[in-house]
């Protein structure tokens, strides 16, 4: 028996909104420690990895490890029907060929129940090597979203260059060019609005804005986002998910392969 109940059901809604257009089908791996998912987009350029700790749920029971393969667009479509204040419960028997989703509006005496058929997917797991990144940038997630959105009006790729004097995001296109320079913020009065830049070694790397704009759909999950970069390796864009007490309950990490000179 598997049962996971989340009072802040909007977290599940937001996670699905953040991944459904990047990967169409994926498997959730459920164990006593929590639920996780790893999937690449069809072009094998980006990968999304989601983790939700068992502690992050208000009730969590997993009697034996389960793999729940499903169409994420369908799941997102159904979960979209849940209200932002609804409690969401996911249930599956051990030999599941479907899962049950239960939505309970907090203030009312009604229960909405949906069943979703499961799929047998050939999951292809990629081992992601431990990397000591040369550059780690933490910035407000809405600022990252705006940078990606605005620069994609000009060009298809963004070049991220990080050096001691700050980080620059730049693009060029037929219209002209654009760039944004970010410096580390001085005060820690508003941690959500802070920009912190750690540089071991200066880097300059280019990435497709199309994918970064997909990643930015996770903005509602966290006020801050981190970008980890090293020369000639995939970029990691991470949104850490917190509960009401500000404890970490999971994350969405996106990996994006760089564009290199031919």
């Amino acid at each position: 028996m598997f049962e996971a109940r989340m009072v802040r059901g909007f977290i599940i809604k937001r996670i699905l909104e953040a991944i459904k257009d990047l990967v169409s089908e994926a498997s959730w791996d459920c164990s006593t420690s929590g639920m996780s998912l790893q999937a690449m987009d069809t072009s094998h350029v980006s990968l999304v990895s989601v983790s939700l700790k068992a502690d992050g749920f208000d009730k969590y029971r997993c009697d034996r490890n389960l793999t729940l393969g499903m169409n994420l667009a369908s799941l997102a479509q159904i979960v979209k029907a849940a209200g932002n204040d609804d409690v969401i419960t996911i249930k599956a028997p051990d030999d599941a060929d479907k899962i049950t989703l239960i939505f309970e509006p907090k203030s009312e005496t009604e229960t909405w129940e949906y069943e979703i058929k499961l799929m047998n997917l050939d999951s292809e797991y990629l081992g992601i090597p431990e990397t000591d990144y040369s550059v780690k940038i933490n910035l407000p997630s809405h600022k990252f979203q705006r940078i990606c959105r605005d620069l994609s009006q000009i060009g298809d790729s963004v070049t991220i260059s990080a050096a001691k004097d700050g980080v620059r995001f730049s693009t060029t296109g037929d219209l002209g060019s654009g760039n944004v320079k970010l410096n580390q913020t001085a005060s820690a009065d508003k941690p959500d609005e802070a920009v912190t830049i750690k540089i071991e070694e200066p880097i300059i790397l280019s990435f497709a804005l199309k994918y970064l704009n997909h990643f930015a759909r996770a903005t509602a999950l966290s006020p801050q986002v981190s970008l980890s970069l090293s020369k000639d390796v995939p970029l990691v864009v991470e949104y850490v998910i917190h509960d009401d007490d500000d404890d970490e309950i999971g994350y969405i990490r996106y990996y994006l392969a760089p564009k290199i000179e031919e």
Binding site: S43, L47, Y125, L126, G127, P234, A257, E262
Partner: peptide, 14 residues
């Protein structure tokens, strides 16, 4: 022009 790399080059199948 720049060429888009694929993740398979960096991450190993396990």
């Amino acid at each position: 022009d720049k060429k888009q790399m694929k993740l398979d080059k960096f991450f190993k199948k396990s």
